[in-house]
Design a protein around this nucleic acid. Structure first.
Lengths: 187, 187
DNA sequence: GCGGTTTCCGTACGGTCGTGCTTTTATGAA
DNA sequence: TTCATAAAAGCACGACCGTACGGAAACCGC
C-alpha cells in the first residue's frame, strides 16, 4: 500500500497524491482508505517515512557495509545513482522543491530527512579522513553539498533531458571530487 | 500580470498556479482573466516564456558583457546566485521537477529551455578555451552539468535547510571547478 | 457463542478546479 | 455619434478534492 503510494508520489508529487485515485488503485473505497490515515497530511508524512526507510534499506545501509573511505563513498554513490534512476525519480527531490516554501509538518519532516542525509555523507567522509585516505583539511560539509550537487545535476539532466551521457558525467564529476581530497602517495 | 504569475509559480509551482487565485490577485473576475489565456496550459506556457525572458535579461545577457573566459563565467555564476535567491527560488527548477514525468507542451518547452541553458554555459566555456584560459581537453558539456550541479545543490541547501553557508560552499565549489580547467602559467 | 473493537463502505457536504456560454461594458475608427 | 470590436463580468456545469458520519462486516479475546 505505502509502497505504491511512494511510487505515485514520485511521479505526481506529495500534493498531487490524491486520496481518491490512491483508493481506487488499492481497490478500496475512498473513505475506506481515508480511515487508515486520518488526514491527507498524515498520509504525506507516512509516505515520506516509508520512502526514507526504503532509502536506508537500499542505499545507506548496504553502502555502510563497504570498507571505510573511498570504497564506502563509491558504494554510496553507485547505489544512489540506482535509487534516483527508478521511474519517477527520487521522491525527496520532488518533495523538497515542492515544499521548500510551504511551512508545516511535511516541510519540517523533509528538512530533518535532508539534514540527516547531509550528515550521513559528511560522516562517511570523516571516517575516510580518520583512515588517512582523505585530506584532514577538507570540509566534510562542503563535500556533502558537492556530492549532492553531482547527484542533483544528474537527476535533472537524465530525467528532464533524457540525456544518457548524464551518468558518465556524474561519475566523472564524482572522480574529480574524490581526486581533489584524496591523499596521494606523493604526499 | 505575467510578472506576478511568475512570482506565484515560483512558490506553488506551475500546477499549483490556479486561475481563480490569480484572478483575484489581479482584481479581475475568473472568467475575465481566463479570457486572456485560452487554457491553463497556455497560461503555463506564457509564464514559462516570461520567466525565460527575465532570466535572459537579468542573468544571461549582462554576463555576456563581461570579458571572455573566467570573468564571464564568474559574472554568469554570480548573477545566477542572485536569480536563484529570490523568494520562491528559480521557477525552472520547480517546474522541471514537477513536469519531468508529465508529457505535454509544457514539458517540451521546459526541455528546450533547459537544453538552451546548458548550451549557453557550454558556449561561454568554449570561448574561454578559445582564449586559451581553459584547457582544450576539458569537455564543455561536462562543465555545464558540473556548474549546474553546484547551483542546484546551493538552491536546495539554501531554500530547504536555510543554511547560510550554502553560498560560501557554492563559491568554493565554483572555484574548484574553474581551478580544475584553468591553464596555469606553469603549463 | 458473545460483545467489543477494528475495518471498510455508502453517502453526503462544502469547496475549488478548469472551462464553456451569454451579457454587459469599454474602446476606438468612421 | 455611431457602430464594430474587444475586454471583462456573471453564471453555470461537471468533476474532483478532503473530510465527516453512520452502518455493515469481519475479527478476536473471552
Amino acid at each position: 500500500m505505502l509502497d505504491h503510494a511512494v511510487e505515485v508520489a514520485r511521479r505526481v508529487g506529495l500534493s498531487g497524491l490524491t486520496i481518491g485515485t490512491l483508493a481506487e488503485q488499492a481497490e478500496l473505497s475512498k473513505s475506506g482508505l481515508f480511515g487508515h490515515f486520518r488526514s491527507k497530511e498524515a498520509l504525506q508524512l507516512q509516505v515520506l517515512e516509508h520512502a526514507r526507510t526504503r532509502f536506508e534499506e537500499s542505499v545507506a545501509r548496504p553502502a555502510l557495509r563497504a570498507p571505510r573511505g573511498e570504497p564506502r563513498l563509491r558504494a554510496l554513490f553507485d547505489r544512489w545513482l540506482d535509487w534516483d534512476a527508478v521511474p519517477g525519480g527520487c521522491p525527496f527531490v520532488a518533495a523538497a522543491t515542492e515544499f521548500d516554501d510551504r511551512p508545516g509538518a511535511v516541510r519540517d519532516r523533509l528538512v530533518q530527512d535532508q539534514r540527516d542525509m547531509f550528515d550521513m555523507i559528511a560522516t562517511v567522509f570523516r571516517t575516510g579522513v580518520a583512515e588517512r585516505q582523505f585530506r584532514a583539511e577538507a570540509d566534510p560539509d562542503q563535500f556533502a553539498q558537492d556530492l549532492y550537487g553531482v547527484l542533483l545535476a544528474r537527476h535533472h539532466t537524465l530525467r528532464l533531458l533524457g540525456d544518457e551521457r548524464a551518468d558518465a558525467r556524474a561519475r566523472h564529476a564524482f572522480d574529480a571530487l574524490i581526486g581533489a581530497v584524496r591523499i596521494k602517495p606523493s604526499d
